[in-house]
Design a protein around this nucleic acid. Sequence first.
DNA 1: TTTATATAGTTACAAACGTAACCGTCGATT
DNA 2: AATCGACGGTTACGTTTGTAACTATATAAA
Lengths: 150, 150
Amino acid sequence: MESGFELDGFIPYRLNRASELISLSFARQYKQEFDLTRPEWRTLAALGSVGAMTAKDIGVHSHMHKTKVSRAVHSLEQRHWLKRIPSYTDRRFEQIELTALGREYYRKITVLAHTYQETVRMKLGEEAIRHLDLALAAIEASAGLRRKSK
Amino acid sequence: MESGFELDGFIPYRLNRASELISLSFARQYKQEFDLTRPEWRTLAALGSVGAMTAKDIGVHSHMHKTKVSRAVHSLEQRHWLKRIPSYTDRRFEQIELTALGREYYRKITVLAHTYQETVRMKLGEEAIRHLDLALAAIEASAGLRRKSK
DNA sequence: TTTATATAGTTACAAACGTAACCGTCGATT
DNA sequence: AATCGACGGTTACGTTTGTAACTATATAAA
C-alpha cells in the first residue's frame, strides 16, 4: 500500500488543519458569548478598525464574498450594531458604520481577540511565532498562486 | 475610529486566509478533473497511503468528523473507488479499502498533489517553506490549544 | 438473561455556503 | 433622452456542513 504520499506532509492539508486548530476555540468564544458567525465578526472588525465603509469595501478589506458581506451586514443591522447611511451622490451604495452599541461590542470582542492572540503567542513560543509571521508574509506576498487563472 | 486592533495582524485570520490561498487552486483541480470534494479527497488519501481501515480510523487519520467520513465513503463507494469488508468479529464496523479503480485514481491525484506542492515550494521559496514547516510543526505540537475544553 | 452503557456508523434537520440570476442605479454612447 | 454595459447589492436555489438524534451491535453489570 506504499505510495510515497502522506497527507501529513502535504502543505495545503497541514495549513488547513493548523488554521482550524488556531481558529476554533476563538470562534467558539465569539459564537457562544455573542452569537456571531465568522462573517459577522469580520464585518464588525472591519468597520470597527477602519470606520465607515461600503459593503464592497468590507468585502475587500476582510476578503469575503459579497453575499457573505450582505448577509452579515443584514444580520448586524437587525441587532442595531450598525446602520446604513445612503449616499446621495450615488444611490447604488451606502456607507455602513457601527452604532454606539456596535462599537461597544466591537471593543469587547477585540479584547477577547487580543487575549486570545496572546495565549497563542505564549503557547507557540516566540520562535515559532516569528517563523509563522515570516511564512504568512511570504504567502500573502505571493497571493495569487493559481496555476491557470480560471 | 482608532482601536489598536487590525484584522490583518490577527493570527487566526491570517492563517485562515493563507490556508484558503494555498488550498484553493489545488481544490479546484481535483474538483474539476475528478469531481471530488475535499472530504472525498482526504478519504482517498487516507486509504491510499495507509491501506484498509475503518471509517473511524479515516476520521482520526485525516481529522474529519464522522458524518463527513460517512458521506465521503458512501460517495466513493458509489463510484466503486472503494469497497467495504464487514468484520465478522464485531459487526458494528467494516474495513474499508480502495478498489483497483480507486487506487488508480489515487495515484493520479497524488501526482497532481506532488506537482502542486512543488509549485508552492517554488513560489514561496526555500526560506519561507522552512519557516512554514517550523511554524506548522509548532502548531501541530501544541494541538489542543483550547482555553477551556468544552 | 435482562438491563444499562458504550461504540461505529447513518440519517434528519437546520444553518451556512457559493453560484448565478436578479434589481436598481450609474455613466457613456448615440 | 433612449439605450447599453457596468456596478453595488440582494435574493433564490441547490449543495455542503454541523449538531443531534437514531440504528445496530457489543460489553458489562445486575
